[in-house]
Amino acid sequence: MDIIAIQNAFAAALVDPGQPAPAGITTARGKPDEKRFAVYRNNVAVGLTRALESRFPVTRQLVGADFFAGMARAFIAGHKPASPLIFAYGGDFPDFVAGFAPAAGLPYLADVARLEAAWTHAYHAADAVPLAIATLAGLDGERLAVARLTVHPAAALLRSCFPTGSIWQAHQGDIAGSASFSGGECVLVTRPEFDVRVHVLPPRDAPFAEALFGGLTLGEAAERTAAEPEFDFGAALVGLIGLGAFAGVRMEGG
């Protein structure tokens, strides 16, 4: 057998526990041994499960270790890493969780996983000096209205129908007793320097933040939020920029 055929057979048996070890795999006894081949299968399965456990520790705490292991196994079966960069593995795990029927009773689970995915992404994201508010101070009203802010490479905005930030926060230390949460939250993940930060934004500013992250101009974002009586354009902008949400400003089309 040529090496391409050998590796195709090896890989096919590796990813499918239902298959026997491939032909041509043997031992010093001259006889194949399923348990030996299973070491490789196990290394891959356990390694990827650990990768998910380490990226999604709160998701795991929420459902318990056994349920998480089962959910991870179901995910791994259909999602092998696209590259050897294992820290990036599981970016699509939150979407999988959202559609994982046995967890349907925990509708907030996928958003908690999304927050955790954003956390690791922020940790490894490119370094960039956050936009300073002083950069905008020199712009007159006309130019301010058409300015677009470049999202910082580490920043992510998660608008959730659930109290995702509070649930996440409750799992950062020892959880004592029961807890009660309600309402949606808009969570902003940033990494202005090297430490990842997580903030729950004021609800009135959520549509504005979302508009800016979506690439709208400051004027468009402000118009979109104008109906919100409590909204204060200046305070929201100073706040978001102060948290390190943006890396630059660009002026297009006027």
Partner: peptide, 16 residues
């Protein structure tokens, strides 16, 4: 998991 001790919007954690 901890979902069983959390009350989110009136729903206690339930897994199938």
């Amino acid at each position: 998991g901890t979902c069983t001790t959390m009350n989110v919007d009136g729903h206690m954690g339930m897994l199938e």
